[in-house]
Design a binder for these strands. Sequence first.
DNA 1: GTGCCCGGTCACAGCACGGTCACGGCGGCT
DNA 2: AGCCGCCGTGACCGTGCTGTGACCGGGCAC
Lengths: 217, 217
Amino acid sequence: MRVLIAEDHRRLARALAEGLRREGMAVDLAYDGHDALAHVALTRYDVVVLDRDLPGVHGDEVCRTLVEDEHGSRVLMLTAASTIRDRVEGLGLGADDYLVKPFDFDELVARVRALARRASPPLPPMLTHGDLMLDPGRRTAHRAERRLTLSPKEFALLEYLLGADGRVVSAEELLARVWDEAANPFSATVKTTIGRLRGKLGDPPLIETVREAGYRI
Amino acid sequence: MRVLIAEDHRRLARALAEGLRREGMAVDLAYDGHDALAHVALTRYDVVVLDRDLPGVHGDEVCRTLVEDEHGSRVLMLTAASTIRDRVEGLGLGADDYLVKPFDFDELVARVRALARRASPPLPPMLTHGDLMLDPGRRTAHRAERRLTLSPKEFALLEYLLGADGRVVSAEELLARVWDEAANPFSATVKTTIGRLRGKLGDPPLIETVREAGYRI
DNA sequence: GTGCCCGGTCACAGCACGGTCACGGCGGCT
DNA sequence: AGCCGCCGTGACCGTGCTGTGACCGGGCAC
């Protein structure tokens, strides 16, 4: 179970991390809003424990990003204030639970566990190759931090190639699996799509062609 | 990637089909058990999304048929009930995954993709001889950690020689198996290709020639 | 020694394979 | 309706593989 703690009070953050780790969770730390966003862009967390008063980017903003980008993480908001209004606002932003400082550590653990249980079932793992990263669940692809906008066919093709993990994949196999049996085997469909994909992937080239045999990543 | 959706609620079925098609998959529909069986008898699907409560022939029955007849399809069961017992029963029938209604559409897509990926063909084994290593799946060849770039014919020839495993292979046999029947038996094709291959393999020599008989590795 | 035969080497030319491009249809979105 | 983006299609082009024949060299038999 992966947890991110976004909290600028380092002593508190480290104490929480330590405690959650002893509970068997994998914990990452972020000390400000930018850091938090950077973390969630790279890793999928089951639960994000999010201090609302976060320097850099405000906790509300981080929360909105998490919800809008459909990261699938559950958010547990921490706040110093305790008014009903805060509570309502927090939940309105899409947070899944709310905890007011000071809180009891055991309660935090219990709530994180509860959220994790509710967390969406594990999405298929990321596919990566070098500086290329592809998230089949969210249908996003990045090359060296740069976001790629791929069409559905391009994405499916790249996903299949990545899944083949270096094996050479013939044009027939691609036609059968990325397209379907009805596809015209004599047309230039595959090579055109490969060409377009290569263009979007940029340099250095990732997809190599093996003459007479097919393509390989 | 071919997917069959067997689901009697037509609106839901069509919505799913539409969504999966936008993900680049080829989708067929079946609205009852008989229909589902007729489809799988005609076409090989990578994944079958199967409602358990199917009119005509029950989903369990369809699932059993799929598994017993070894269609090679992965089955994703849909069900209205949510007890652990249902889950166990479904998986016990040979379903590969299980989803409880109501479900999140993205999750369905993610799971269908995950299942389809598990259906990729297995890798053929490596061929090695001394410090020479050849990977038919990746179409790569190495000599003592040094990567060789072989042309298709050279690769096929080396692959055949390696597969013969020390046996002496005549030029006629090579012509018949690496080339085809139409190849001209009086031309210098084989010896030229052998020569080029030897050049790329480097020292010490690996391919020896047996006078009047052929070549051996 | 000499001639013959088998296999290696080389340069060359044809061509098949893969890359690129422009076009057009289709479907979605505003 | 009109625009836009995705995607299949066919034409064209460059490149490097590959078949081919000529030539060479060495070993063996006589």
